[in-house]
């Protein structure tokens, strides 16, 4: 009995030994930053010196039109890009999932290919493709489709379109693979039964495929939402520092610039990041509830 207790204690100690390096790194690079942000958020930097201002950073935020607009851009990108991408990814997955065996492999490979590029590479490539004297404008003018170059990067409205196009190019194939895996795991007997009942293909898609895919679609919406909330690389490189004139400024990019560029105010930037954490948390909570409800109703 005594010996068994000793052995259990030895196993328990080994367990702690295993997790110790991770817990140490976690404390240093996650727990400490989170806790110390409580200090930063109450302070205001001026040059190298900083002083206590309590909740003053949040009062300042209420008057900060650029930050509010930046948050608005995050929401705009979510509202337009995610549905567009989910629709395209679903459509492509459905087309791939038909009886076209010979072409499926190469087509799937080609459609997934954008996922191997980094966000920096996407931004660089699309900037060179879309700048005023860039590839696409030259081709369009050459073909006689337009007379004047389109301001893909210089026009406030077009710049937003450009960000959405670049994100859609990068992520559609990635999400398509999720959906395809989901579609292929649906029992073929369900479709055979529908076929016997004479349900046309389109009806089968909306009545069988889509409802069974809801958890996968929700999952991809969750990851895309949190990704879009953190959008930074594309507006910083592709449309250059959130330009033109902050038309593509996002919350994360604005925080980065407040902290490390514009006036190096770590306090204000921390307060801004609290808002982003709060919104991300809220979205995560709503989506978890949706996923949970869905799992329950599926049972």
């Amino acid at each position: 009995m005594e010996q068994r207790g000793l052995y259990q204690r030895y196993l328990n100690r080994f367990g702690w030994l295993c997790v110790a390096p991770s817990v140490f790194l976690f404390s240093l690079f996650m727990a400490y930053p989170i806790l110390s942000s409580l200090y930063y958020v109450t302070r205001r930097w001026k040059g190298m010196a900083n002083s206590f201002i309590g909740l003053g950073n949040f009062a300042r935020m209420a008057r900060d039109k650029v930050f509010q607009a930046a948050l608005g851009h995050n929401f705009l990108f979510m509202a337009v890009q995610i549905p567009l991408m989910v629709f395209l990814a679903l459509a492509l997955a459905a087309l791939l999932n038909q009886r076209i065996k010979r072409f499926r492999g190469p087509l799937r490979l080609a459609l997934f290919l954008p996922s191997v590029t980094s966000l920096v590479v996407v931004s660089v490539l699309f900037r060179v493709l879309l700048q005023a004297n860039g590839f696409l404008n030259n081709v369009l003018i050459g073909a006689g489709a337009i007379r004047e170059p389109i301001g893909w990067l210089n026009d406030a409205a077009w710049a937003k379109v450009t960000i959405i196009l670049a994100m859609t190019w990068r992520w559609t194939g990635y999400n398509m693979v999720f959906f395809l895996v989901g579609m292929q795991s649906i029992d073929p007997e369900i479709y055979e039964a529908a076929e016997v009942d004479g349900a046309p293909r389109i009806r089968q898609f909306f009545r069988i495929t889509i409802p069974l895919l809801v958890p996968v679609i929700l999952f991809s919406a969750v990851t895309s939402t949190s990704g879009t909330m953190q959008l930074l690389d594309e507006p910083n490189i592709l449309t250059w520092q959130g330009g033109p004139a902050n038309a593509t400024m996002t919350a994360a990019l604005y925080i980065y610039r407040q902290a490390f560029f514009v006036n190096a105010d770590f306090g204000y930037a921390t307060a801004l990041s609290y808002v982003v954490v709060l919104i991300s948390g809220l979205f995560a909570y709503i989506q978890m509830r949706l996923l949970g409800d869905n799992a329950r109703s599926a049972r």
Partner: peptide, 26 residues
């Protein structure tokens, strides 16, 4: 240890931008 793991999981939703400032100072 399961409680420790729970704490780790909680931080999954924290975006990187929210911790880079204290990390930079560190």
């Amino acid at each position: 240890r399961d409680r420790v793991f729970g704490v780790l999981l909680l931080t999954l939703i924290i975006p990187q931008i929210a911790i880079v400032i204290p990390m930079f100072r560190m």
